[in-house]
């Protein structure tokens, strides 16, 4: 055999051995079982920044607008808080979080009213927002929910971008709450947003009695949400810890009084002609809960949140305003 041929063949075999050994060494996993499961727990979790803005001293923190036109109510309430300009800066990307949990027509009171979403989106634009996003992770099938709630059309009419909850849009977020540790969140729209505004309808809820501006953030979570009900008041009081929105609106123009949170009959809904806006979700929900004809003193999650310093139920002691529209 020629030397050249000998070297070629031995060299090739040697390369194959070295390649195999190198590959195996590179992939070699010496971890013990405990280490393996510990490593599983430490995932690359995002952290959610605060979306709050500095409020000038003496500004109004909670506004109640009363009237019949839901769009005007939103404008009036935000106006009373100092206008959208006091929340949104020029060039901001604003995420609007309506409650689109169920496949329901707008008048059934189970979802955020399109008129309110539109009014808020227009105000954001007027305040110089570069882009307005609309996102929710419904319980029912997402396309159906956005279509039948009228929010898809509403978003299209005001040039807001609808972000659908595709699997790739979720990522683990370190929440560090009482119940929620690290949990998958609908991350894509949050990552894109400079400001976040929650727009919740005021609803009866079978388990926690009221679904309002705090409970609305359930819709930005993914994963096994059906376990939340086992500690529902702990979960809901974790939400103001989890996210610090720029502003929340609680639309109580039509209130789902019973059979919540799904409703399904016009008989379940009452006209209440009210919209509450504010920066303290606990305050907003304390105020809003009375519109369900219920006593906020008995809504556990409000008091849990207050005890944790996440808001105040004594909104009447803060600076608030009431506006009558039309």
């Amino acid at each position: 055999m020629e030397r050249r041929e000998f070297l070629r063949r031995v060299g090739l075999t040697g390369l194959a051995v070295a390649g195999g050994a190198g590959g195996a060494a590179w992939l070699y996993d010496p971890r013990r079982g405990d280490q393996y499961f510990r490593d599983q727990q430490v995932s690359q979790a995002h952290k959610l920044p605060s979306f709050r803005v500095e409020r000038p001293s003496g500004s109004v923190d909670l506004a109640i607008a009363r009237g019949s036109d839901p769009g005007q109510l939103a404008r009036a309430a935000i106006g009373a808080l100092g206008g959208m300009g006091s929340f949104i800066s020029k060039g901001d990307v604003v995420l609007l979080k309506p409650n689109v949990a169920f496949d329901r027509a707008p008048l059934l009171g189970a979802t955020t009213r399109p008129e309110v979403l539109k009014a808020v989106a227009v105000l954001c634009r007027e305040a110089g927002a570069r882009q307005v996003l609309v996102a929710d992770n419904p319980i029912n099938q997402p396309e159906g929910c956005f279509f039948k709630s009228g929010l898809q059309q509403a978003a299209a009419e005001v040039g807001a971008e609808l972000v659908l909850p595709r699997a790739s849009a979720f990522a683990p977020v370190e929440i560090g709450g009482e119940v929620l540790g690290t949990w998958p969140m609908f991350w894509e729209p949050l990552a894109r947003a400079d400001k976040v505004i929650g727009i919740a309808p005021c609803k009866d809820h079978n388990l926690c009695s009221g679904s309002m501006s705090m409970k609305n953030w359930y819709g930005l979570l993914g994963g096994r949400r059906n376990q939340f009900h086992q500690r529902i008041h702990g979960i809901v009081s974790d939400f103001p810890h989890m996210i610090k929105p720029t502003l929340v609106l609680l639309d109580a123009s039509r209130v789902l009084m019973r059979n919540g949170p799904t409703g399904g009959s016009l008989g379940d809904v009452a006209e209440r002609g009210t919209l509450i806006a504010g920066v303290d979700m606990v305050a907003v929900d304390t105020c809003g809960y009375t519109l369900l004809n219920r006593d906020p003193a008995r809504l556990e999650y409000l008091h849990r949140a207050e005890a944790r310093g996440l808001g105040s139920t004594r909104w009447r002691e803060s600076s608030w305003r009431e506006e009558q529209v039309g």
């Binding site: 496949d103 388990l207 009900h229 399904g264």
Partner: peptide
């Protein structure tokens, strides 16, 4: 506690 089933039940 649970009753997720009751929450999502769509009839009225």
């Amino acid at each position: 506690p649970c009753v997720v089933c009751e929450e999502v039940c769509p009839t009225s």
